[in-house]
């Protein structure tokens, strides 16, 4: 799947599908380091249990999110409210929802 990550992000265009596609792209780059580049990623995919990502991978993902979406999406702050077990059990869908809500709120200004 190819995603145009250079396109500007605005509130009007933000849908669950586009954000899931973009985040899947970021995850594929991360997974490629481990030789896992063809895993199916859905809203229910769990970062740790399904993708075998460690907390340090979530740090990288957080940096990718910041690069893509700017300060509107603060992943570190989002998960600062979670217990470690909750971070480990987090799904891709939870992150997608957070990004969609953050971008829509930012667009509403």
């Amino acid at each position: 799947m190819s995603v145009d990550t250079t396109a500007p992000v605005t509130g009007g265009q933000v849908t669950e599908d586009t954000v899931l596609a973009e985040i899947s792209g970021m995850l594929r780059v991360l997974l490629d380091e481990y030789g896992l580049d063809d895993v199916e990623i859905t809203m229910d995919t769990r970062f740790h249990e399904d993708l075998e990502l460690e907390s340090i991978d979530l740090v990288s993902l957080s940096a990718d999110l910041k690069e893509r979406y700017g300060d509107e999406v603060n992943f570190a702050e989002f998960i600062a409210g979670f217990e470690l077990e909750e971070i480990i059990a987090m799904t891709v869908g939870q992150l997608v929802d957070h990004v969609v809500v953050s971008l829509r709120e930012a667009a509403r200004g």
Binding site: E54, S55, I56, L58, V59, N74, A76, I79, A80, L84
Partner: peptide, 13 residues
């Protein structure tokens, strides 16, 4: 351990 132990605890605060 890794820097994640701080990134998800003390860093943002």
């Amino acid at each position: 351990d890794s820097l994640a132990s701080y990134y998800f605890t003390l860093g943002p605060a």
